[in-house]
């Protein structure tokens, strides 16, 4: 049975997009290591895709050449932390409550396990985070990373995170 709710007129799309993009930008631009690696985020609705644009400084084995495993692992950890924070923030952003200038506290990594399936090629990499469980204190997040072909993931990771506490 539908309840008779008085709906206010939907906000103009530009207003919504601006608010979402501003919230994402304040989250991402505040972290120096994200800037150092050059990681960017593409947002479609609430779905984020992290992008690691290729740079020579990401190379670990110059002979092959291949991306450094540590660069891939850092890229996936960034994807997990931002993805988890974003999923926590989303409802606030939609309510229009979130002040885009206020940087929320980030979840802390408890453990992170990386599975390297293929060597990283010297080109852009992409990743998406899947929040499998998000409780009041702990969260479990899985990340998949790929390069040219979405079906051929080159690395995946799973990690546990400590959620930021409001009384901290």
């Amino acid at each position: 049975m539908k309840k008779a709710i008085k709906r206010s007129k939907p906000e103009p799309v530009q207003v919504i997009k601006h608010r979402r993009d501003a919230a994402l930008k304040s989250l991402v631009s505040a972290v120096p290591y994200i800037q150092f690696l050059g990681v960017e985020f593409d947002r479609r609705g609430d779905e984020l895709t992290a992008i690691l644009p290729y740079q020579e400084m990401l190379i670990g084995n110059p002979v092959i050449p291949a991306l450094h495993g540590g660069a891939t692992s850092a890229f996936m950890e960034i994807t997990a932390v931002i993805g988890l924070s974003w999923s926590m923030l989303w409802d606030h952003i939609e309510d229009g409550v979130e002040n885009a200038d206020v940087m929320p506290r980030l979840p802390k990594t408890i453990d992170f396990t990386v599975d390297y399936l293929r060597s990283g090629l010297p080109r852009d990499a992409y990743a998406r985070a899947f929040v499998n469980r998000s409780g009041r204190r702990y969260a479990s997040v899985h990340v998949e990373a790929w390069q040219d072909n979405r079906q051929r993931i080159y690395a995946q990771a799973t990690g546990h995170f400590l959620m930021p506490q409001s009384n901290e």
Partner: peptide
């Protein structure tokens, strides 16, 4: 830095 509020190094850098 991975946590701008505390200045703590990113877990990603430690893992590298």
């Amino acid at each position: 830095i991975g946590d701008p509020q505390t200045g703590v190094i990113s877990g990603g850098a430690v893992s590298a």
